[in-house]
Design a protein around this nucleic acid. Structure first.
Lengths: 338, 338
DNA sequence: CCACGGGAGTTATACGTAACACGTGACGGC
DNA sequence: GCCGTCACGTGTTACGTATAACTCCCGTGG
């Protein structure tokens, strides 16, 4: 059964339910009590669900004369401070049926109530990080063009994908450490359900396994500073030979690990080498400065956008991976001769 | 001359210019060549400017069936990484006449083309940080309800205001340092055109001036890690007695200063005490952990939102300042006895 | 003198929704 | 027997814009 390519409207729902458009509006707006029978209301709701109906917010906003969306202007997105401001504002807004849109000063702007309830009001497409996977089923509910940032290679969602070459980054890290002479690795892995972190662990293990006499132990921690400290601390107190190199899935984890190492009187890099991944500002704020892999976030964003434009245009998006580069700083050195 | 309270529409412009609404649409859409005389086109543009006309984007979107706005889903706003992703995506988007909206996974969302060109499509009001002052004249161009975060007390924009009690934070810092016995201060000030930073400098100077035998020297640096390091380094190489306490306008500046102090062989806090302001995660990542003033960003956001809701409701917003609290950590200690 | 073309506009319409103002039976009370 | 009321809807309109289709007038070539 071929059906129209355009999104269903409230009139389509009305026709399917055998009622007028006005009745649909009443029912879906929850203003039907005493105006429409419960049975009819249910028929309308069923029809709306079956058709996958989503109200057109542009039309609604036009009709209503307001949008229940406010704008938050902040100096930049880089500060945790304004991230918090946003979170607080969004929470209260949600309690009042409002949405919040971000506009980071000279460089950028944001959405509303429910991600798509408000966003869809004005969207031609979606760019999504695979780390926000929980929202993805919702996204697929709409049939908006979608581009994934760092999705799995199989593209399980059938969407276009832009990938950082994380595997190559891990390869560069392990080459560097193996070249320095390290053989006993501790891997501080991010405990998040994301494919990008899986590849880090997998690549590290296979890379190291090719060199005789090496071993790697993996510990997991949620992606926070404090969790990383605690996990590292726990690993240091277990018996057995100490690792000479600590490979972290992320700079923030490395910063947390620094703290644990310091408490145990271990000096970086003479007692143990440490590496991160991301090259955040944090990497140069800590002492010693962190050897890490630079990910070009801006390029990642640009490539994501270009891919979406391609999809909207009916063109084939560029599928090549984005290269990443090892940045060697003071946190890695040859292991102390035994 | 009393005029309507509602926003002017293209029909109002048409009436003012003595043409039809269609002509206005043609001229403003830059599709008038060969259809409207140059003189008439100019009359229309003048009328639009005089009335402060801004097209209703909800109507436009409804008519056009698209919005030239895409959604960027990211895990959270706290990471510099995704801030970069956003910046890159927004840049490319802008080049194509698209806007980008942010949706930080389970906690929050973002904007478009020109901040208000796209945002206004769906806005009932605006919350703006005073640090994004460059955008404010644009905001006032619309007559949207506006709430300022940390505006000047005179409220020069005539908008509602929510303030953190920064002055009290500075007072707490100076009391703390004076109590420890410090008398020679170096103030590392943020070199940004913002009232909030002015108050920090002013409050520090007046507070310190009340104690006999004290002095304070101020140096300025842009709000970046590297600039703070360079400025501190320069201050340390100038002749004269060394300060015993370094008061920074912001945690990030303090982290930069740490680096400069380390290079000069100065130990924190035994050689010099250091304080910050914000209490970012960074404050506990560096060694020693930073004595700083905690600003409750989320509460700030909540209060901003509540104020806006009040304005929209015709109520008087709560004008009380938000309290802040000194957090004493390892970066402050009594000065070394001379 | 007429036909034709192009310049300079105007008129009319549709986008999808929300909500106001009606309509239509059926039933109950007096 | 008639009116009021209630349950259950429907018809219609307006929101502000962009654009296709139309009108009108003037100049010009044949």
């Amino acid at each position: 059964m071929a059906h129209s390519n355009t999104r269903p409207t409230s009139r389509d729902v009305a026709q399917a339910a055998g009622v007028s458009q006005a009745a649909v509006s009443l029912v879906l707006g929850d203003k039907w009590h005493g105006r429409v029978s419960a049975a009819t209301a249910q028929r309308v709701r069923d029809a709306a669900r079956d058709l996958g109906y989503r109200p057109n917010l542009a039309a609604r906003n036009l009709r209503l004369g307001h949008t229940r969306t406010v704008l938050l202007v902040v100096p930049a997105l880089t500060t945790e401070f304004f991230a918090g401001v946003y979170t607080g504002a969004a929470r209260i807004a949600a309690q009042h049926g409002f949405g919040v849109v971000l506009y980071p000063s000279p460089e950028g702007v944001g959405p509303a109530r429910d991600p798509f309830a408000s966003a869809q009001a004005a969207l031609d497409g979606v760019i999504a990080s695979s780390m926000a996977a929980d929202a993805l089923t919702t996204i697929r509910g709409d049939q908006l063009p979608l581009v994934m940032l760092d999705s799995d290679p199989q593209g399980s969602l059938g969407a276009a994908t832009v990938n950082l070459d994380i595997a190559d980054g891990v390869r560069q890290v392990t080459e560097h450490l193996l070249g320095l002479g390290h053989r006993r690795f501790l891997h501080l892995a991010a405990d998040v359900p994301s494919w990008t972190f899986e590849v880090r662990a997998h690549e590290l293990a296979t890379r190291v396994a090719t060199v005789p006499g090496t071993d790697v132990r993996t510990i997991r921690a949620p992606l926070t500073f404090e969790a990383a400290r605690a996990a590292t601390e726990a690993a240091l107190t277990t018996p057995g030979p100490h690792p000479t190199a600590l490979v972290c899935d992320d700079d923030k984890l490395a910063a947390g690990a620094y703290k644990a190492l310091r408490r145990h009187g271990l000096h970086v890099p003479s007692d143990i080498s440490v590496t991160g991944l991301d090259d955040l500002a944090l990497a140069t704020a800590i002492d010693p400065e962190l050897t890490t892999v630079r990910l070009d976030a801006e390029l990642f964003g640009e490539r994501g956008m270009q891919a979406l434009l391609a999809v909207l245009d009916g063109r084939e998006p560029d599928r090549s991976d984005i290269p990443v580069h090892l940045v060697v700083r003071g946190s890695t050195a040859p292991p102390r001769p035994h």
